[in-house]
């Protein structure tokens, strides 16, 4: 086993994922992410990028390999996975807000029930977070009364409420109407500039170019290629160029 370098907050090594139906979703994927780094993962659909992202907080179990978050082995039996998930926030493509709770209730729920904070503390923090994502005037709205962009921003605030060290974004803008993509990306940009470690699966090449420290290209369950964004898009790699030719 390799020595874990202390400035890497995520170290994923030789990840294999084989589903019971023999679908080989991840093939020997390794990735290191440093503290404060923004890594963008792109690739065609079915390339395993979402699956890989979901292994990082064990929403998806792995068949082989190791994942260390902050030097803690995620797959070890002794690891309290619920504790680990507090440190790794996740934002989903379909928002997955709790429909029976208001925006404020969504953000407060976990701090109240998991961190056992007082109602006053949780509410104060939730207020601050919702203000930060620009929803100060929609605190008491239920998700069904919010637009997609607003829902996704509530979802980001909900993840931030646990004060995570890492934020995972699983195609956060793919389910949004085009005019709402900007507001969500803006929140993510400000989060990145605050120094949050982020791993983002997205089709937003503009975001990758502008915000990412590193861009990763996945195809067929393999991590094909990783590079800094300014060099990434000009790379001659044929598989990457074929993909970019399709999406750009």
């Amino acid at each position: 086993m390799t020595k874990v370098s202390s400035n890497s907050i995520i170290v994923a090594e030789n990840i294999e994922k084989i589903y019971p139906n023999n679908c080989h979703a991840l093939k020997n994927v390794s990735l290191e992410v440093k503290r404060g780094e923004v890594v963008v993962i792109i690739g065609p659909s079915g390339s395993g990028k979402s699956t890989f992202l979901r292994t990082l907080n064990q929403l998806e179990t792995i068949s082989d390999g190791t994942i260390h978050i902050d030097d803690i082995d995620l797959t070890a039996k002794s690891t309290n996975i619920n504790k680990m998930r507090e440190e790794v926030g996740m934002v989903f493509q379909s928002f997955n807000l709790f429909p029976h709770k208001t925006a404020l209730g969504n953000v407060m729920l976990s701090p109240l029930k998991v961190l056992k904070k007082s109602k006053a503390d949780a509410e104060k923090e939730a207020h601050e977070l919702l203000t930060k994502v620009g929803l100060a005037n929609r605190m008491n709205s239920y998700p069904s009364h919010l637009s997609g962009g607003q829902q996704q921003r509530v979802a980001i605030a909900r993840a931030l409420a646990m004060k995570p060290k890492i934020m995972l974004f699983d195609e956060p803008t793919s389910a949004l109407d085009p005019e709402m993509v900007g507001e969500v990306l803006d929140v993510m940009k400000s989060l990145a500039s605050d120094g949050m470690t982020m791993v983002v699966v997205t089709h937003e090449m503009g975001f990758a170019r502008e915000v990412a420290d590193r861009v990763v290209f996945m195809e067929d369950g393999e991590l094909v290629f990783e590079e800094q964004p300014d060099r990434f898009f000009d790379s001659p790699n044929p598989r990457l160029q074929r993909f970019l030719g399709q999406v750009l």
């Binding site: 929403l59 998930r85 996740m90 989903f92 997955n96 709790f98 029976h100 976990s110 029930k113 993840a159």
Partner: peptide, 24 residues
Amino acid sequence: GQMEAARSVGMNYFQAMVYVILPQ
């Protein structure tokens, strides 16, 4: 996705059931 969202903010199975899934 509701269970995943609840687990991703650190709730255990029981908490996710009681506070998120069962009310719905």
